[in-house]
Design a protein around this nucleic acid. Structure first.
Length: 609
RNA sequence: GGGGUGGUAGUUAAGUCGGUUAUAACGCCGGCCUGUCACGCCGGAGGCCACGGGUUCGAGUCCCGUUCACCCCGCCA
């Protein structure tokens, strides 16, 4: 038997052979996916590589030596084979396989690398625990679904680069090691060996640099770039993640939004062949909060919130009257046709759910059912004045057989609880169209948020966000009402991009910084270089950053961004495969002039214990 | 920082009220099988019940702590 590797090149990958190839010679290399030994009939081996899976046939009559060697194969052995492509008989065709019409009748087999029995089945159907899969990430990534995800990601990234370049954007790299700036996300810190006692920060985004690129006259910039944020990871958040970062000069919101819509169309087309609409619907932040209780509403289903605070003010139902009097919020969700389905037990369950949402106190969950012939059921309708009840029913468009769920309490809590409740109901009642792509712009965010902790106004977006022109007068007087020229792109309940028009006017910038309680000296210390740059003819500019990981999570239909990041970290920020973050030796710390005090779980002395 | 769920064979899970030798499926190993495709049949091996304490005559099971994974809040665009 001839050796194969180094002597023959692969004739194709394992996903390419079709009936037309029958009769020809094939050389394939890949991993043993599955083995079916039928004794004297021969041995079927599924060979897998990035391209797909091909069935190999080993028979004693065909090639005794190859057959005997094949008997020693095990799962995940890496092999090379050579043989004739055979068309399968009609009755042996496997319609579920892309290569199901053929098989390779192997005459030569070379074992390139044997494999121990892997810790979990790559070809299997039962999912191993996440912990184990992350520890052996390179094995998990062998699975065809994973390879499909990453191939799609690569295709999307390429399509974005191609499209953006065609649109006149230039790709520019910005530094990761940057100056620490307080506010916003917590930074990872990197000690500067050459300047003892000083630290770099890992960039949480290229924000300031892309603005400087605009001042530099680059006009249109984009970058596919890693960002670092030392905050607790989540299903849709990692400490390091990838943004498609975009900035443009001489633009208005309209131009940026339409540019991003074009990019999104390219992405969806490339990834799943879908044509998104020319323009996406828009709603203001105020509308989103009012109807959905969140700034990233899932628009694949209804169940909008109704604000019935005014109707509750003098309705006869004590709880509501009290909340209205206290300046709280009352929100109702009409659940069509749910009067029967929402049993007492189910309602109790939902009550526990909204109170368990750790959203702060809400006054429980009131409910009302409209039965046949206008008969009401529930504590609220029983206590409420008839005219108040009618008004509520009218506003909520109640029909017979509907149920109404009502939350009352402090506005922030009610929004949060009603958002959670809406999503829960949507899922429970199967109202979510899983095949839908509900993209939507949310605009007119508040410029500032009050921070209880710091007892000061903070930027909702960042300090360089341009206020809406007609709100400028309120910068000194009514900061909470000032709207920002900021926008988010939301898809199916996930924020997938966010950006703003930036301030290019030094006077407005100074007023915003003052509103944030940042003194001139402080501003100079923190981002003096940017303010300095604004002195030299800064063009009007704005931009956006899209979360590539989240977009890929949605497009691949996976439920965590971990599934579209090759080497993700756990919820504790650990890399279970490499053991990062690991300890370091004292000598390294000494060189950095860094001392470690608290060493919970591992000392600095035994590196990588 | 807070709340929740979980960790039992290589894997996924079951394990009753605290009580004999800890089950099953898949995988693995050996054998059989002339067309399988999640092949099938027969047999076999495989366990520090996450870790550390405690209660008890006796702990996989109860209690306390630790740790890891996942979900949520805080945090984070």
């Amino acid at each position: 038997m001839e050796t194969i590797f180094g002597r023959y090149a692969r004739t194709s990958d394992c996903g390419s052979l079709r009936r037309e190839a029958a009769g020809g010679q094939a050389v394939l290399m890949g991993w043993v996916h599955r083995i079916r030994d039928l004794g004297r009939a021969g041995m079927f081996v599924l060979l897998r590589d990035r391209g797909g899976i091909t069935q190999l046939l080993f028979q004693p009559d065909l090639a005794a030596e190859a057959y005997d060697l094949a008997k020693t194969l095990g799962p995940e052995h890496c092999i090379a084979v050579r043989g004739e492509v055979g068309a399968r008989d009609e009755k042996n065709v496997n319609p579920d396989m892309a290569t199901g019409e053929v098989e390779v009748r192997v005459t030569d087999l070379e074992v390139l690398s044997r494999s121990e029995v892997p810790p979990f089945e790559i070809s299997g159907h039962s999912e191993a625990k996440e912990e184990l899969r992350l520890r052996h990430r390179y094995l998990d990534m062998r699975r065809p679904e994973f390879q499909r995800n990453f191939l799609m990601r690569a295709a999307v990234t390429q399509a974005v680069r191609r499209h953006m370049s065609q649109q006149g954007f230039m790709e520019v790299e910005t530094p990761f090691l940057v100056k620490y700036t307080p506010g916003g996300a917590r930074n990872f810190l990197v000690p500067a060996r050459l300047k003892p006692g000083r630290f770099y920060a890992l960039a949480e985004s290229p924000q300031i640099f892309k603005q400087l690129l605009m001042i530099a006259g680059f006009d249109r910039y984009f970058q596919v770039v890693k960002c670092f944020r030392d905050e607790d990871p989540r299903q849709d958040r990692q400490v390091e993640f990838t943004q498609i970062d975009v900035e443009m000069s001489f633009v208005t919101e309209e131009m940026i939004l339409s540019q991003v819509e074009g990019m999104a169309r390219v992405i969806w087309k490339e990834a799943i062949g879908l044509d998104l609409p020319e323009a996406f619907p828009r709603m203001t932040y105020a509308e989103a909060m009012s109807k959905y209780g969140t700034d990233k509403p899932d628009l694949r289903f209804g169940l909008e919130h109704q604000d019935i605070t005014e109707l509750g003010r003098d309705c006869g139902f004590r709880v509501f009257e009290q909340v209205a009097a206290d300046g709280g919020l009352i929100k109702a969700i009409r659940v069509p046709g749910a009067a029967k389905v929402l049993s007492r037990k189910k309602l109790d369950d939902l009550t526990r759910f909204v109170q368990r949402e750790e959203v702060g106190p809400v006054a429980g969950l009131a409910w009302a059912k409209l039965q046949a012939e206008g008969a009401w059921q529930g504590a609220f309708p029983k206590a409420a004045k008839p005219e108040a009840l009618d008004a509520v029913a009218k506003q909520c468009s109640m029909e017979e057989g509907d149920a109404l769920l009502v939350l009352a309490g402090p506005a922030v809590n009610v929004h949060k609880a009603a958002d959670a409740l809406r999503r829960r109901l949507g899922a429970d009642f199967g109202l979510i169209d899983e095949s839908a792509w509900a993209l939507c712009w949310v605009t007119d965010f508040p410029l500032f948020e009050w921070s209880e902790e710091a007892q000061t106004w903070t930027s909702s977006h960042h300090p360089f966000t341009m206020p809406v022109a007609e709100d400028l007068d309120m910068l000194e007087t009514d900061q909470g009402k000032v709207r920002a020229r900021a926008y988010d792109l939301v898809c199916n309940g996930y924020e997938i991009a966010g950006g703003s028009i930036r301030i290019h006017d030094r006077e407005i910038q100074a007023r915003v910084l003052r509103a944030l309680g940042i003194s001139d000296q402080e501003a100079k210390d923190k981002f003096g270089f940017l303010l300095e740059a604004f002195k030299y003819g800064a063009p009007p500019h704005g931009g956006i950053a899209a979360g590539l990981d989240r977009i890929m999570m949605l497009l691949t239909g996976t439920d965590s961004i971990r599934d579209v990041i090759p080497f993700p970290k756990t919820i504790n920020g650990l890399d279970l495969m490499t053991g990062a973050p690991g300890g370091v030796f004292d000598a390294q710390l000494a060189e950095l002039h860094v001392q470690v005090t608290g060493t919970a779980g591992g000392t600095s002395q035994d590196a990588d214990s």
